[in-house]
Design a protein around this nucleic acid. Structure first.
Lengths: 190, 190
DNA sequence: CAAACCTCTTAAACGGTATTCAAGAATGTG
DNA sequence: CACATTCTTGAATACCGTTTAAGAGGTTTG
């Protein structure tokens, strides 16, 4: 308790730090999306990134924390891709979103099944839902009565989740999205 | 290739067979529902049933097959409990169903996340959805145009799944179910 | 320059998992 | 009593996520 009291500045090379982390996230993302979370051993992630499994644990506390980073990366990509879509008709937006999320549907199922076991994942899931609901709220036509408005948003949100996680043919998917959008119009027109 | 050609009649004790199997299913059910599928080792299931882990593998091929048997048992109970409920108003039925399924919501998430990995579980899930949709179809008020009818059933089904798997307070749950039922009335009245 | 230090990497080990194997006990049949 | 079938088990296998202890290699400091 003598010498090194406040002498811990963030000194060294900072670039490789972020780069390696990004490489690990990228490798994990590919494998998680393709094979699923549970079936992908840390083994293979490390191998794909050209590293020993232990190395991952210097950058991430857990396999769960790695999953969290992957989810953040995917969400960021989705948000960027959504930007131009936000001008489309509501039903088309839903169809687009379903198709987009379907590519990572296995991870969506993983998130739901790990919510009870990982508090961090639970928080991420809550933030994700809040985000989607906010986007949906901005897209609803006209002023709706707030009581039914919230219910409507929840229904749309859950329906999208259902369409994503159960593989359903494109025609049926579109019909369902049209039905959801039509309902909002009916409510707004009243 | 000489002696025992066609000498394998199904002879022995048949009662203990089914009893032991039922005990294993019961033990697994309690643990799966309480702690979840993945966090429950075959270890503990065997211990709760007063058996060695290996014994389970004489009655069930897999942990997945054991899960399947548990799901069948739960479904049977739910169906029996639903019988009187089938006379209630549609919204009340939904609220009841959500509350009922919530008790096994962790298993529902497990099923969804293991669909891609276990064909048998996938089939079970398909049958389950077909069953729920058939029940819903019988409950829809009046004759609906078949195109929107199917979409409506899907939406209700997915909304119920969403209400079950995301913990949502009772008031919000009821509001959502009322909104779903109200929509059907609007469509039928038109 | 050298010593101390921090960042990063690794080989090896640990505890836990589902599942399999080989052997044996229990139980009805001839 | 032999015998085959049904059931049970102790031990082993293979894999997994994670930890530990040790060490390279560059950075700072005296």
């Amino acid at each position: 308790m003598s010498v090194k009291i406040a002498a811990m500045p963030s000194n060294r090379r900072a670039q490789p730090q972020a780069e390696k982390r990004a490489e690990l996230i990228s490798a994990a993302r590919d494998l998680f999306v393709q094979d699923g979370y549970d079936p992908t051993p840390m083994n293979r992630i490390a191998q794909k990134a050209g590293v020993t499994p232990n190395t991952i644990y210097w950058y991430f506390k857990d396999k769960d924390e790695l999953l969290l980073a992957v989810l953040d990366a995917l969400l960021q990509e989705d948000m960027a891709a959504y930007d131009p879509v936000s001008q489309w008709p509501l039903a088309d937006q839903m169809v687009w979103l379903v198709g987009r999320l379907r590519q990572t549907s296995t991870l969506m199922a993983t998130v739901h099944s790990r919510i009870r076991v990982s508090p961090a994942l639970n928080e991420w899931h809550d933030r994700f839902h809040a985000l989607v609901e906010a986007l949906l709220l901005a897209q609803l036509p006209g002023p709706l009565p707030p009581a039914s408005r919230d219910a409507e948003i929840r229904i749309i949100c859950f329906a999208i989740e259902g369409l994503v996680s159960h593989q359903i043919d494109p025609v049926t998917t579109r019909q369902t999205c049209e039905a959801l959008a039509a309902r909002c119009l009916v409510l707004a027109g009243r």
